[in-house]
Nucleic acid binder design. Structure first.
Lengths: 191, 191
DNA sequence: TACATAATATGATACTGGTCATATAAAGGC
DNA sequence: GCCTTTATATGACCAGTATCATATTATGTA
């Protein structure tokens, strides 16, 4: 073995990370293989040594994006109990900061309308990520509210998504504040 | 005037209607000028006699899509009072039928993630449609709930959008039912 | 230091899609 | 029935993009 055991793997990870950002910023169709490779400091030619197709990269990018999101929240919520986690999660997710940074945000808010138009492997990766997030919400919710997890996530993602359509920052902030308040009520946590 | 006064206008309307469907089905980037013209029974060449650019067509298509949606609901809710309208609207919007028919459904649920990536004219058309819908919701809501209109719309669109990610129809139906129930509570109407 | 091989770059191909110049066809007025 | 004008079609151009064949570079080993 001439290169270190991990060399190629590291390159692959760089490409996937670049893709995870680019796909959220421009959508799966809006971004090109050459562009992502350049972002990772490479040229387009070597791409097919790492992935069998662009679709395979998009799948990896979506997994990576959900993974980044999950790890970030795990760090942020470390040590908190269920209700505290729910409150902190809602505050971070349904926030102006999230609205203004789609490229590093939750793939649900950024890709919701692209996904139904993608091929099956991409849709499956997306659904995996959605279900994992729903599962985490369920763990934080009290037993009698557990079935609401999916609907709560829908409300969170919908609020961020619609806030991005508002050109007026104040209108967007009001929408997000109304959504946060309602979500906390539904979750049974005090404001 | 050699052709009838309305001939060109009729053709234009056919093209816009075809675009309104195609754009919702495949996204603004996913659909081509030639494809839309073929759908309208024409070839691609004549396109630039009607629109200065593809973007102008997308703007017209989004206006048309919001208009279709508005007219359909106006018919459906004709004669109902505020609370009745809200209930009927939620039942129709947050429904499996809507989930399963993006091409004829609300542009918000279908295009939410594409829109932030579009040029300003397209984003403005979208925002016009969003604000018009929010305005209609406000008219149906009691005074003290009027400020919730945007957040309520976000929840409705988010629920439909996320339900489209669920490959299991039952999971999707449950999510939509939970969302409907919560929306009606927030709106202050009896189930 | 030269070699063998793994990793990446160069460059080409085929295709698609927006745009536009030019040609053809349709339709009412003389 | 011809002519002018309006509307649409044909065909081409150019840029962008996924894919792949081949060349080149980089790196650890003998």
């Amino acid at each position: 073995m001439r290169y270190s055991d991990t060399h190629k793997e590291e390159t692959r990870r760089k490409v996937v990370r670049a893709a995870a950002t680019a796909v959220r910023a421009k959508g799966p169709e809006g971004v090109g293989v050459a562009e992502i490779m350049a972002e990772a400091g490479l040229t387009h030619g070597g791409f097919y040594a790492h992935f069998p197709s662009k679709e395979a990269l998009v799948v990896a990018a979506i997994d990576e994006a959900f993974g980044q999101s999950a790890r970030r929240f795990a760090r942020m919520l470390d040590g908190l109990d269920g209700p505290q986690s729910l409150g902190a999660f809602v505050d971070a997710y349904v926030s102006p900061a999230h609205r203004d940074n789609p490229a590093s945000g939750c793939p649900i808010a950024t890709l919701s309308s692209d996904l139904p138009r993608q091929g099956q492997p991409v849709r499956q990766a997306y659904e995996r990520g959605v279900r994992a997030l729903i599962g985490r919400l369920q763990n934080w919710l009290s037993e009698d509210r557990r079935h609401l997890a999916a609907s709560l996530l829908a409300e969170m993602a919908g609020a961020v998504s619609l806030s991005r359509a508002m050109s007026d920052d104040e209108d967007a902030a009001r929408l997000l504040a109304d959504a946060r308040a309602n979500l906390k009520t539904r979750m049974g946590i005090d404001q």
